[in-house]
Design a protein around this nucleic acid. Structure first.
Lengths: 237, 237
DNA sequence: GAGTGGTCTAGACCACGGT
DNA sequence: CCGTGGTCTAGACCACTCC
């Protein structure tokens, strides 16, 4: 009865092709590892051109359903793409999205020569001028995130003249500097030092720390460590 | 001199169009919010067909650089897509990728009616039959990850007959059941109970816990909490 | 060499959404 | 209405890779 789910119908667009192919994968008509017919054959079955089939299969490959290689053909991925997209909103948006009032506060700001560990981490020469900014983000005046950031002044000269008294460095940078590459990582750590002090935590309390390093055309721009209040969950979509 | 970076050259493919457009965005020729010329104009400039320009712009929109709407046209995104892709490899691959030997061990396996909290979390009816599996993953015989998993038996009837003595439920499920949707989140917690016991940690020691919930066509399949050894970092690509 | 996907062309019609 | 992107066609040539 419901064969529209699993067969080609006339007037086929690339979305239809995608839908039918996914149905066949999910229903194990084409189980993991199976080869699909060549594009030409599928085009004949779906009564459309190869271009249309090509777009459908290309997108399904992008989405992780298929694996394609010239001459070898197209096969169903044994392991579906085990990837998650994390959305990393601006803190302000994230806080205000929950209906809470956002507040920013500067903790400290110093221009100094890059210490060895930082130079190594960011790919700078030791002693290169950098700006070190620490700040807090509050939701309804409750601590939300502690941010510890280093900015490569050579990459963003205007930062040297910016006080970051009213606007956080994250928001400022996003509006000022595009980036070509970013590296994220996450880990659980125990609260310590300023982090524990400003978040109001006992030393050693488990907190989620996110690190972000960005480049503009191979030039390192900024390294940031953002530490969240206990209980915070980062969610993919 | 290096104007090949910022201008159209003959024999233009969609990759060339993409490269040039990105260059113009990064160099603020087209700053955030700016409108791009219509596809027809770009096609003339690049000496290619509109199809080629269309593919380039469509992909750049997918990648978060551009925003496109009919009639309104194409504009540069004010805030670049703040998204990161996390790769979630199979544990075995991750461990073996570091050169270490992978070992799996079953900790416990029980079939039981879904407790209330689980039913609510997964979207089941309380009392629905589920399988609860706990297991360990080792790298060179050092604890690497503790896995606590619930499987909806109605979604995967074959799981009822599987002992999970030699193969982890993750690996088994990946080969057995496709999924249509997955939700992923992670948080920092303090080690406790079995987690602390099997990872060999003091109670309260900060650990990274990742939770994964998957569906097959609106049917919840499995909920897993994976707790990593202290110091583990999850890295984006 | 030969089969398969990768890409481009030139042209067409459609769908959306502002005017 | 009409400009813009969205999609499709029919055909072509190229690039990779297995044989």
């Amino acid at each position: 009865m419901d064969d529209s789910e699993n067969s080609a119908t006339p007037g086929t667009g690339y979305r239809d092709v995608k839908r039918v192919v996914v149905e066949r994968i999910l229903s194990s008509t084409w189980p993991p590892g199976a080869m699909l017919p060549p594009e030409v054959d599928l085009a004949r079955e779906f009564a459309c051109t190869r271009t249309t089939v090509n777009r459908a299969l290309r997108e399904l490959a992008d989405e992780g359903y298929l694996e394609r290689r010239r001459k070898l053909g197209t096969r169903v991925r044994a392991n579906p793409q085990r990837q998650a997209k994390l959305s990393i909103p601006l803190i302000r948006d994230e806080v205000e999205g929950t209906g809470a009032a956002y507040r920013y506060a500067l903790v400290g700001r110093e221009a100094l020569p890059a210490p060895g560990w930082l130079a190594a981490r960011m790919g700078l020469a030791p002693g290169d001028p950098v700006l070190h900014v620490r700040c807090m983000h509050y939701a309804d005046n409750r601590p939300f995130q502690f941010e510890d950031r280093w900015i490569n002044i050579a990459a963003v000269p205007e930062a040297a003249a910016e006080g970051f008294a009213a606007t956080g460095p994250n928001e400022w940078l996003v509006r000022k500097v595009p980036y070509t590459r970013a590296e994220f990582s996450f880990a659980a750590t125990g609260a310590a030092g300023e982090v524990a002090e400003y978040l109001g935590l006992r030393a050693g309390e488990p907190v989620l720390a996110a690190e972000r390093l960005t480049w503009l055309r191979e030039v390192p721009v900024t390294l940031a460590e953002m530490t969240f209040m206990p209980g915070y969950r980062m969610v993919s979509r």
